[in-house]
Simulated assay, not measured.
Amino acid sequence: MSSPTRLILSEAQRRVVQHLRIHGPTARVHLAQTLGINPATLTRITQQLVEDIPTNSETGRGRPTIPVAIAGDGGWSVGATVHPGWLELVAIDFRGEILFEDTLPFTQNDPRVFARTVEARLRTLVAQRSFMRGRFLGLGVAVAGYAIDGDRNRRAVVDWIAPWDNIPLREVLGDVLGMPVWIENDAAAAALAEFYRPEIIRQHRSILVFFLGHGVGGGLIAERDLFSGEFHNAGEVGRLFPGSEPRPSGVDLLETLRRAGADVASLADLHGLLDPYRAVFDTWIARAAKQLTAATHSGVAWLDPGAVVISGALPQSVLDRLAAQVTEHCNRLFSGLRAPTPQIYASRLGSKAVVLGAALAPLHDVLESRR
């Protein structure tokens, strides 16, 4: 596998890439005018970062106006996360588009075994794919757990990955892998993935994301950057819903179905139960939507997001219905306000949002001024 390369962009380069990511392909002359960059300088500083988009359109006299877009081969990164019983990987190019997705059985809970498994699998995949020999930016790892003592690399984790608890994950994983590693909370990673969806990033600067998986988490994008908070725990909405009480989480839904007599082992089994247990789903969705509405109302009051996204590992029809009911409740709560209110979306990424957001972490870091 190619050696990881720390890609550092100048302020002008970041502005160009961000503009193209938000606004899509743009004629080079218009890009230079909009950003106030000399056309010759623009061409020089964007080598390997942008590419011409072929077009058959006629522009009249003179040379045709050829739009440019982000070049996929400007770099690539990988995201990884572990689930109960399996490991998930995804690689993306510099545009943020998926190069490959991969899953494999994994029952170990040792982070070092996780790192060695990821390294071995990546070596195999890279050997099979010639397009992955370009600039490798690093690995993002999404972890189910909140930061301890303000250190984003030390996490209080869920029980089934207990050996990951309160250890310097970036150093432990990086030492085994020999590459830059980004550690992120799973729900915060999902928020990053949701924000990079074209229909979101091209309309909104700030979003609030709820991720409903085994637990319930959240993530915040503020002014196009992932907001982590003073102690790197912004979006820990699970605190609003104690595990000892009914909550809008996947585990809670599983337990609700089991009490109703369903034989269900994991979230992957939910699709087959939608029809036979329709009434159970209806009741659970109605209750979860009210809980998410309360959290949304508070989040909107404090954060003023442009959008709220209901994301997670639940069936698409469940996410759709949750978003619709939260929208209905919020319309009543916001009625009479003259201020703009956020649009509420149901995610189309499903559980893949977590690993995709992990892969986006190295790329997002390159595009931000934070160092």
Rank of each mutant, 00 (worst) to 15 (best):
S311F: 04
T296V: 03
L104H: 06
L192T: 05
W284Q: 01
K352I: 08
L303I: 06
L104D: 06
G243V: 10
V355L: 11
F106C: 01
L42C: 02
D269T: 13
E368C: 09
P105W: 02
L208Q: 13
G306H: 09
A147I: 03
G74H: 00
V118C: 05
D93R: 09
P248D: 08
L49N: 02
R63S: 04
E194A: 10
D252E: 08
R116M: 09
I66N: 01
W76E: 07
R321H: 13
R14E: 01
P242Q: 11
G140E: 10
E58Y: 11
S347C: 07
L177M: 15
S266E: 07
G138V: 13
W164C: 00
R371V: 06
R61F: 14
V90I: 14
H23T: 06
G134W: 08
S317F: 05
R112S: 00
S228L: 13
N38F: 02
R6H: 10
A361Q: 05
A162P: 00
Q203P: 02
L212H: 07
V280S: 11
Q128E: 14
A71S: 12
V90C: 14
L169D: 00
S57M: 07
R332K: 01
L273T: 11
A80D: 05
S244I: 11
E97D: 12
L292Y: 12
D159V: 00
L267S: 08
G350D: 04
D165G: 01
L122Y: 07
G215F: 04
G79I: 08
P198Y: 12
I148E: 05
L319V: 09
P242S: 12
A115P: 01
G261P: 12
F195D: 06
L89P: 12
A265S: 13
I221G: 07
R348H: 09
P67W: 01
R170A: 15
R155W: 00
P54H: 05
L137T: 06
R321L: 13
L208E: 09
V90H: 07
V181L: 07
R129A: 13
I285W: 02
A279F: 02
D304G: 07
R278F: 08
L177F: 06
G336W: 01
G229I: 03
L99Q: 14
D263L: 14
V29H: 12
T107I: 11
V300K: 03
R332V: 09
P84T: 06
E368A: 01
R205T: 13
R348I: 08
Q343W: 11
T46N: 02
A234Q: 05
E255H: 13
V90Y: 14
N38S: 15
T59F: 15
A142G: 15
L319W: 13
R44Q: 13
T283Y: 03
I148W: 05
I92W: 06
Q325A: 06
G75E: 03
I310S: 11
